[in-house]
Design a binder for these strands. Sequence first.
DNA 1: TCTGGGGTCCTAGGACCC
DNA 2: TCTGGGGTCCTAGGACCC
Length: 452
Amino acid sequence: MCSKIVGALLRFRIGGWEGSMVQTPIALIDCNNFYVSCERVFNPKLHGRPVVVLSNNDGCIIARSKEAKELGLKMGEPVFKRRDFLKEHRVEIWSSNYTLYGSMSQRVMQTIEPLVPTLEQYSIDEAFAWLPGFSPAELDALAVKIRAMVNRDTGIPVSVGLAWTKTLAKLANHRAKKDPRWKDLGVCNVTEFTRADLDALLAGVEVEDVWGIGRRRAEFLNHHDIFTAYDLANAPDRWILKNLTITGYRTALELRGQQCIPAELTPPAKKSIISSKAFGRPIETLEELSQAVATYVSRLAEKLRSQHSVASVLEVFIHTSHFAEGKDRYSNAITIKLPQPTAYTPELVAQAYKGLEKIYRPGYKYAKAGVMVMGLQSENARQLNLWGNGEGDPATLERNKKLMEVVDIINEQMGRGTIAIGTAGLKQEWGMRREKLSKRFTTRWDELLEVS
DNA sequence: TCTGGGGTCCTAGGACCC
DNA sequence: TCTGGGGTCCTAGGACCC
């Protein structure tokens, strides 16, 4: 009875919003400089030194150690522009090793999972934990414990932000990393903050550091005299809705303490899958482009099958470098409606080739190609071709499916690409440049033993 | 010489229909 | 010369995230 009244009052107070009445504290646990930290676990010499990890093809800087940040190296900076600088400051440079990071990520999540009631993995290096019924003191103790356990069991340092909404938990986490008040502890808990405390905190955070506000929006907001998280939280609702759409409005509400970005405990099935990559060197021939496309389609089809989906639409795209100009520049894409939904690699490759032939133009230096599937549906729900001919014939479908299962198992156990479609090319001279790749310590015994 | 890859959501605007 | 209003569906493109 009493809680009903309180609930009604609460709802009234926050303007008719119909969310969960009893708010749940949320922790955001975020690995510090994740890729760099992973490299450090297996290479202790990297501790205390400036370290960067590069994107595919060793193109840009995508992760930096604290020391590298202090040198002024920026996220996304092209390496070739800073070659001399990197050398001069003896910065350790590593190619990205996603196999390693993926398995380290799993270890981190597995360490946190038993410590919290529900965990929502949000990205390779972050997770939200939903902590109903935890008192503020319990929250602090839990955060400290998570940090200690993850560090002990995986060697990865993490920071924890605690708050009543996801957006505020992200913000608290950001403070836990940067603000001298919480930096040493690595935990920032704002669940007990008064409105005034929170306002003061928000006023110290630039609006582009708010989750959901990117560079473009930040520029726009600055233009309208909104510089901090506090300014955004206090902008008029209608103005926000009109200029930042519903997503920006949700962000503002969350900054005010209203939970409106829900938990996503079971990740929804993907609606599209992309496989695309820039080449290690420019490609001009249709033959090599075809190899690349076959390779990407194979990876994509693998992902498709691993989530037990079939695709009904396939898109192929190719383009020259973004930095090519005038007549050297070309990009094109084609969308193909598949005769029937499928996850069968040879069929997808055949369709992709047809598309590629239509958009390919000789005489260009292609820098990148990609394939994408959409219109995904569950493999069980797929509509069979009632006439029982061609690809839709149930017996053929079943045989193809079995074949793919075998291929997937072999590739999983023996390493990716053990069995590949013949046209993917054996040498793949256009493949990725990864000159400074660390070993696959967590997934290959042979490579771990090599260094020890 | 060299500038990542893989996703989602939202909106505006065109096509089409009555 | 004149050329509605409102609905739906689809797509392209922009913005965001990591």
